[in-house]
Design a protein around this nucleic acid. Structure first.
Length: 553
RNA sequence: GCGCCCGUAGCUCAGGGGAUAGAGUGAUGGCCUCCGAAGCCAUAGGUCGCGCGUUCGAUUCGCGCCGGGCGCGCCA
């Protein structure tokens, strides 16, 4: 059912209320979707909400309101339930209309221009080039990519950015780890760094380095550079396999090269919120809601990661992104207050006007990965983790994406590798894709059974669609734009996943209960048109999630 | 100890002031001479962690407990 129907009903109720209770402002009317079909298509709790202010019995008030409703060709009937709810039932024609809308809008059905092309930067993955991507990065990538697509669907101009932390101690650590492996390989006495990276991939890089014609690993800078290039290439391949694409890559090292770090420090000094203590330079982040002040420049003269972080986000703002969204593991949630505090301080002079809530964060919980009935601790340094690539190879890209998006971000969840592999056939993604493939198959069958050219289903008369399952499907189709709008407002792609599962489920039920290709041509065409509308919405939704829409399975 | 997040069916999870709390999976029993059985239908399974408040109404909001995760570096 389309949004027009809903606003039409609100209009009716508002006018009715104006007659019954002229002293009440009419803006209070809200409509809900009853869980029970017997309660109609919409219900309105206005009488209960207003009863107290009007000192009236809610049920009587509801009865009067219903009696005062203006006539309408969409509204079938309005009745008062025992407790004062007004239940509204709509005529089939009001629901059938949605099929025409879907045919007309096609791939654009559900999209809107409400953001008006405003820019937003979505930063995600941002894995350090110190190891392959693991399943946690997979959750990040799936979320970031889907959130980007969702924002685009509502008219945002989205830039997807990957931030490379290529200037810190961890990179040095990587270089030392590889160097140690090279030395071991060559039989040179070597001391492995205490907090070095122990994964097998470090050894592989060491071997490649030697195969590339290097006699030894004594040039640490060259070793490090080689390792970073290798790992970045691997990560790019992983992301490619996952179907994730970025518009830009931002290097931390460029913040130093462009003197943005120095400028950020200067801005923080100018704010008057900086102070020296114990040989270090601090910022009074506690004045911006942090629980303790933070060091900016260590006593050894180097900066903490906090400073380039602030510089990076200042750069985002200066690049024109008045909205910024970061996808991060909740284990980094302490940086939220800190980065915002730094931005507020740095922009306090000079009137940049960065909002307090800038940037926004979508924090997701780490996965508990189970394999062989045991929890796999994800640890880069210990080298024990499941790579994203391994998962994609064994479970499939669509299934991994759909599964990783099927929980809200801030919920912990258990990813059982064995289950995902062994039951990949039963993964919910196939349930949705199957509905899509089934519809194509019905269209093929039409040709086989009835022949002739494809009928113009866009022009089909929909009046025959009056069955309970058909009306329910029509209603569900009409909810899609609201679902998108909501998912974007809450940055919650899982809502789209649940919607698609429900839509597919209703379709499967319908398909089993009713024959689509009946002999009466008008009914057949109406049903085929409904199927096509379902297919269109499945396509639109799946493509937003980055999941393919196969014609055959 | 302090801060953030989470406790909903055996398991994995939706819902988030509104009527009888849902789905998937697992269990049990049915449905292919008929458009794709990767599907459908039915049955079973719950003190929505506990308590006290706010409200016409609380699983949902507030406070306090209990249990779990994460964070609390001059690491990132």
């Amino acid at each position: 059912m389309s949004a027009e129907v809903k606003s039409h009903l609100i209009e009716l109720l508002t006018r009715g209320l104006a007659k019954v209770a002229p002293q009440q402002p009419g803006s209070l009317i809200s409509l809900e979707r009853p869980k029970q079909a017997q309660h109609g298509d919409f219900s309105c709790p206005a009488a209960m909400q207003l009863a107290r202010a009007l000192k009236r019995n809610p049920r009587e008030l509801a009865l009067e309101l219903v009696a005062a409703l203006p006539p309408s060709e969409w509204l079938e009937r309005a009745e008062v339930a025992g407790n004062g709810f007004i239940n509204l039932r709509v005529r089939p024609a009001a629901k059938q209309h949605i099929v025409k809308t879907i045919f007309a809008d096609g791939d654009r059905y559900g999209r809107s221009e409400s953001a008006g092309g405003r820019p937003v930067i979505v930063e995600f993955v941002s894995a350090n080039p110190t190891g392959p991507l693991h399943v946690g990065h997979g959750r990040n990538a799936a979320l970031g990519d889907a959130i980007g697509a969702l924002l685009e669907s509502q008219g945002w101009r989205v830039t997807r950015e990957f931030y490379y932390n290529d200037a810190g101690a961890q990179i040095r650590n990587l270089g030392l780890s590889v160097q140690a492996r090279i030395r071991e390989k060559l039989g040179v006495p070597a001391e492995f760094p205490a907090d070095g990276y122990r994964g097998d991939y470090v050894l592989e890089i060491a071997e490649k380095y030697l195969e590339a014609g290097n006699a030894d690993g004594e040039d640490l800078e060259a070793v490090t550079r080689f390792a970073v290039v290798e790992l970045r290439r691997e990560q790019d391949l992983d992301l490619q396999a996952f179907g994730v694409r970025f518009d830009s890559y931002f290097l931390e090292s460029s913040l130093y090269a462009d003197e943005r770090v120095e400028k950020a420090v200067q801005a923080l000094l100018d704010s008057g919120k900086a102070f020296e203590q114990d040989g270090a330079l601090w910022l009074k982040t506690t004045e911006y809601g942090d629980d303790k002040d933070r060091v900016m420049r260590k006593s050894d003269g180097t900066y903490t990661y906090f400073v380039p972080d602030v510089a990076y986000h200042l750069a985002k703002w200066e690049r024109g992104f008045t909205r910024a969204i970061n996808i991060q593991g909740s284990d980094h949630h302490s940086t939220v207050t800190r980065v915002r505090a730094g931005l507020q301080a740095a922009s306090s002079k000079g009137g940049r006007g960065i909002p307090q809530g800038y940037p926004e964060y979508v924090l997701y919980k780490m996965l508990t990965v189970m394999k062989g009935g045991e929890e796999m601790k994800i640890s880069k340094r210990a080298g024990s983790y499941v790579t994203l690539r391994e998962l994609i190879d064994e479970v499939g890209r669509d299934a991994v994406r759909f599964f990783l998006l099927s929980r809200k971000a801030d919920a912990e969840f258990v990813f059982d590798i064995d289950l995902a592999k062994s039951q990949s056939e039963e993964n919910p993604v196939y349930y949705v894709q199957y509905a899509h493939a089934r519809i194509r198959s019905v269209l093929e069958q039409r040709k086989a059974l009835f022949g002739g050219p494809d009928p113009d289903l866009a022009a089909a008369d929909l009046v025959p669609l009056t069955g309970g399952r058909e009306l329910a499907l029509l209603q569900r189709l009409g909810e899609y734009p609201e679902v998108l709008e909501n998912a974007v407002a809450e940055l919650a792609p899982h809502q789209v996943v649940f919607y698609l599962r429900e839509l597919a489920g209703q379709f499967h039920s319908y398909y089993n209960a009713e024959r689509i290709l009946v002999s009466e041509a008008p009914l057949r065409s109406a049903r085929l048109a409904l199927c096509l509308a379902v297919r269109q919405v499945l396509r639109n939704g799946l493509s937003l999630l980055g999941v393919s829409q196969p014609e055959k399975m």
